[in-house]
């Protein structure tokens, strides 16, 4: 047992240096060299300012924009640091709702969101992604249905032809990889950036 102490300590220190420092630092250097944009977080800049990351969803509440999914992320309560307050799309504290399928809070929240969509004139069955929170709270995407169902509202708010917006959504829709892997999706930030460009 005593004779094991030296190899245990030495190998742990060596592994700490090799796998804990050299490996991540070397990978950081190589990644910055080969894929600088991705390694830095796929940031999007507009007029020299960072407006977000292509991979991270952001909160949209304005009727003139397509809205992403509800987000369950929180932030520390500024008045009492031991508590948290809702802070949708807080990219410094990813989190899902972790509500049980039988939680009253879930049933009530979804009913409220469905009612809001009905007020906006959505009469068809609501695409599930539009009223459910994502696992990360930072989901950048909607299903194509989730975007299309918002076309009428956005068109009205912007005084645009709904057919133009539907085409825009279709153009922004990314299909499955090789036609098989993953799910069809629309990146909401990219869609809204394209939307701001319409008619300019």
């Amino acid at each position: 047992m005593l004779k094991d102490i030296r190899p245990a300590l030495v190998v742990l220190l060596l592994l700490t240096v090799v796998t804990g420092l050299i490996y991540p630092l070397a990978m950081t250097g190589v990644s910055q060299l080969l894929f600088p944009a991705q390694a830095g977080g796929s940031l999007i800049e507009k007029d020299g300012k960072v407006i977000g990351s292509a991979l991270i969803g952001q909160n949209f509440a304005d009727p003139r924009y397509f809205h992403g999914r509800p987000s369950a992320t929180t932030a520390p309560d500024p008045k009492d640091a031991t508590k948290t307050v809702p802070a949708p799309y807080n990219a410094a504290n990813s989190s899902g709702s972790n509500l049980a399928p039988t939680a009253k809070a879930l049933v009530d929240r979804v009913a409220g969101d469905v009612a809001d969509l009905r007020k906006d004139g959505v009469s068809e069955p609501v695409p599930a992604d539009l009223v459910t929170t994502s696992a990360s709270g930072l989901d950048p995407d909607l299903t194509p249905q989730g975007a299309l169902v918002q076309v009428a509202r956005v068109a009205k708010a912007r005084n645009l032809d709904p057919a133009v917006l539907r085409q825009l959504v279709e153009r922004q829709t990314e299909g499955r990889l090789f036609g098989i892997l993953g799910e069809p999706r629309v990146n909401v930030l990219a869609l809204n950036l394209a939307l701001d460009g319409v008619g300019k």
Partner: peptide
């Protein structure tokens, strides 16, 4: 959960 498109399954806590 009432009013949702049943074809899309249980999307709470999942990523698109």
């Amino acid at each position: 959960l009432a009013g949702l498109d049943p074809a899309m399954g249980n999307m709470e806590g999942k990523e698109v």
